[in-house]
Simulated assay, not measured.
Amino acid sequence: MSNLRIIPRLDIKGPNLIKGVRLEGLRVIGDPQQHAIRYYEAGADELIYMDIVASLYGRNNLSDIVKKAARDVFVPITVGGGIRSVDDARDILRSGADKVAINTAAVRHPELIRDVSRRFGSQAMVLSIEAKEVAHGRWEAYTDNGRERTGLDVLEWVMRGVELGAGEVLVTSVDREGTRQGYDLDLVRAISAAVPVPVVASGGMGTVSHFVQAAQVGRADAIAMADVLHFGRLSVGDIRAAALDAGLPVRKY
């Protein structure tokens, strides 16, 4: 059994680390580099950087931030937001990222998933999904930081994305994101059951029990969190200790 990964998520707008609620009402937290180094030194398994306004402006501005991070942080880095082509993916990977997370452009041009995975390997192609519940057990995929409907059923879309070559899925519950009410366990479990690749749960962590539930009930392979870390409610060490106490297969640090 592979290790359950603890992944701080850093949402970026311009030069700043920010945090919202349901992907709205963005609040500046501070310097992303300082937070990234702190999380790395505390034992984070990976980091996720998301340029949360990139799709609006048609570009990803994270190259410089990622270059700085890669000099000081020696865990895998996933970068998403505004990646619209193989060339965009190449530029981000050359900056020091290990994986690219693609949502909006993948919805518009699904063949991009195949092109990126063929060029850089499926392990580098993360399908990013922003999901909103539309009925019990049914979710719709959204783009543009949870603003735009796609009409796509999340489970159908995730299966197609993996068939096209996505080697990992990052699923963010727009309904839960920033609320501290816990992950959408039904969503995470449904996606985990639908595809044979690792699933990263994101959106909603408020307590260590939420982390444990996402792993045990949701069957996530990795769990991303932001609010609890950025505001100092929990540390990476707190989360790892609780996971070990629950018998979860996290890396000992």
Results as ranks from 00 to 15, higher is better:
R118E: 15
R118A: 14
F120P: 09
S122R: 00
Q123N: 08
M125C: 14
V126M: 10
L127R: 01
L127W: 12
L127N: 03
L127M: 13
L127T: 07
E130T: 06
A131Y: 09
K132S: 06
E133S: 06
V134K: 14
V134S: 07
V134G: 09
V134C: 03
A135N: 14
A135T: 06
H136D: 10
R138N: 13
R138V: 03
A141D: 03
A141R: 11
T143P: 03
D144E: 14
N145S: 15
R147D: 00
G151V: 04
G151R: 13
L152T: 07
L152C: 13
D153Y: 05
V154E: 13
V154S: 08
E156I: 11
W157R: 02
W157G: 09
V158T: 10
M159W: 06
M159G: 14
M159I: 07
R160C: 09
V162N: 12
G165E: 02
G165A: 00
A166V: 09
A166N: 01
E168A: 11
V169H: 01
V169G: 06
V171P: 02
V171E: 04
V174M: 00
D175F: 04
D175T: 00
R176E: 09
G178N: 08
G178I: 06
R180D: 09
R180C: 09
Q181I: 01
D184W: 02
L185E: 08
L187W: 03
R189A: 15
R189E: 15
A190G: 05
A190F: 07
I191S: 08
I191T: 11
S192W: 05
S192I: 03
S192R: 14
A193K: 15
A194D: 11
V195G: 05
P196Y: 12
P196D: 11
V197W: 04
P198W: 05
P198I: 10
V200T: 14
A201T: 04
G203W: 06
G206Q: 07
G206Y: 13
T207Q: 10
V208W: 08
S209W: 04
H210P: 06
F211W: 15
Q213S: 14
A214C: 06
A215S: 12
Q216Y: 05
V217T: 07
V217S: 04
V217W: 01
R219Y: 07
I223Y: 11
I223N: 08
I223T: 11
